[in-house]
Design a protein around this nucleic acid. Structure first.
Lengths: 154, 154
DNA sequence: TTATTTGCAAAGCGTTTGCATTGGG
DNA sequence: CCCAATGCAAACGCTTTGCAAATAA
């Protein structure tokens, strides 16, 4: 589960201090942008949303790098081509995704009790798992009915 | 499970023809390079391995795009930052990934009996699942051993 | 005060596009 | 023969880097 926004920011400050990293307005701005976003944001997207705050692009890259290094965010492949950054638990409620092959929509799947399964999978491979991301590919309910065959659209 | 290399190429030809796409030496070269690789390959990596064959870089991008469109490959986030392409079932044995937070390597996880779990997850959401991709984030065996505490290395 | 963080400018790549040519079916 | 596929060159956009100035602690 995720926590309240007020607690989230306090926790971020803790995480930064624990690593001897400074609490700066820029870092807080990026964090809030991610908190408010329903989906992962790439650096160009962050730049767009935060252009009023005047953050430079190199700074954005440096911040998401720091956030990912201290476990606040993690990189996700978005749209099969670009890298987005998403808050991790407990900053955001964990969920998984179903990507519909038909219409391309992404359905968020909550309440997937996969944590135990994933932890076991890690143990089987001598790995320590602290986060998992499941992406299902298939057809959503609507597209199952409208399913077609033949060559792909070009 | 995956199939023999000889069958794999025959199946690739089928897939291409079914979509009215042409069987070209370039496409076969890329396919073989992916078949022989133990890990996902980015376009720059493909360019390097296939430079003897003289494929142009734009062609490589077009080919992996086609392969992914017809389900022969799928894109994977490699090293936290770049996009690699990997053969899908049945060209390659299905497996999941552990992305190491420490070194960024992608560790293949085989024998993950998650198909049933994923199918159930789909049913719970009225979706038909025909492919799943699980990405675990954590520490690989080596990094677990080398794990340190305190501030991150700068 | 001091080391970290940031902005700026520029460089470095990865990726895409337009167009003429090649070649598979 | 026809249109898909390719190569080339150039454009484009994302990402990184060096360095000086600003700033959190």
């Amino acid at each position: 589960m995720s926590i309240q926004d007020s607690e989230a920011e306090a926790l971020l400050r803790q995480r930064l201090q624990a690593q001897e990293l400074r609490i700066t307005p820029n870092r807080l701005s990026v964090f809030r942008a991610l908190l408010q976003s329903a989906r992962p944001l790439s650096v160009p997207e962050l730049a767009q949303r935060l252009q009023a705050d005047g953050l430079s692009v190199p700074t954005l890259y440096r911040i998401v790098e720091v956030f990912s290094a201290i476990g606040v965010t993690h990189p996700v492949l978005v749209d099969h081509q670009s890298v987005g950054y998403e808050l991790r638990e407990p900053f955001r409620t964990h969920h998984d995704h179903l990507v519909c092959s038909g219409c391309g929509r992404v359905v968020d799947l909550y309440n997937c009790d996969l944590t135990d399964v994933m932890a076991q999978l890690g143990r089987d491979n001598q790995c320590r798992v602290n986060f998992h991301q499941v992406e299902l590919h298939g057809l959503c309910a609507e597209c199952t009915a409208a399913k077609t065959s033949g060559p792909l659209p070009r």
